[in-house]
Design a protein around this nucleic acid. Structure first.
Lengths: 130, 130
DNA sequence: TACATAGTGTTATATTATAACATTTTAAAT
DNA sequence: ATTTAAAATGTTATAATATAACACTATGTA
């Protein structure tokens, strides 16, 4: 469960936009969409994005440089994320699997190193595109 | 095991550089380093990088926009990659765990979707930085 | 109130990556 | 050896992604 944060005006505007979107949004597409609300510069977008990622309200899809809203209460504040990505239609879905999170949270490498955070991106074809 | 490819001149120059590097290299740092060998433009670098990634000789660390040579014969041609990343010194290590690759290669989500490819990045502190 | 922390607005610039087009090299198949 | 198709190259220009630096404002709290 997310710790509750009161979002600031810019954060709220940008979160709402991403949350309503059915697909991951890129920073400059976000910028274009919020210009009518007074957010004019890339930095204003990136600062809000950084904060939203930090508090776990959104996630960055690293392989796509794009952002989606978090809909997974078990992804402890951006620390453990997993996504499936369709290589044709680019649909991205957050994976919510207790088994997977448990496996990865407990994974230790050969040196016995335990990790505080991970990001996993699966690629394949979604139902529609198969 | 990698299918053997004969690298072209540019590919070989760029692979050698990355392979010798003890840390992931970024595209423009690569460019700077190979300019004395006649590779003058970003596109020449990116094309070689694309090909090297495609054939599995190097991997892209998505969260860092950087490239490392593959030292893991089990990462079937760029289809199944896992890395550990130190958040302080930025040291990146390719993870070679039969258990992990088996688990992820066989992972199916709720829709029974099976994936053809994945990339996993773990974050934490390396031995030195702890 | 005063203080610290976080957020904002703005301009400029750095960094990462691709488009488009002409040419050359390579490998394989006659 | 010659043709041919695919891959790679060289080049200029530009697109897309992201941060630096600085002045200022809002917010919470001691």
């Amino acid at each position: 469960m997310h710790k509750e944060h009161t979002l600031t005006k810019n954060q709220q505007i940008i979160f709402d936009l991403i949350d309503k979107s059915s697909e991951p949004m890129k920073a400059y597409s976000i910028l274009f969409n919020v210009q009518k609300k007074g957010i004019k510069a890339p930095l204003q977008v990136y600062r809000a994005l950084d904060k939203l990622v930090e508090i776990g309200k959104i996630h960055k899809i690293e392989s796509r440089n794009a952002f989606i809203a978090c809909h997974n209460s078990s992804c402890q504040v951006a620390k453990a994320t997993a996504f499936s990505i369709c290589e044709i239609c680019e649909k991205v879905t957050e994976i919510s699997s207790a088994g997977l999170s448990k496996y990865l949270a407990n994974f230790k490498d050969k040196d016995g190193m335990k990790y505080s955070k991970y990001n996993l991106e699966f690629f394949g074809l979604c139902k529609k595109c198969r």
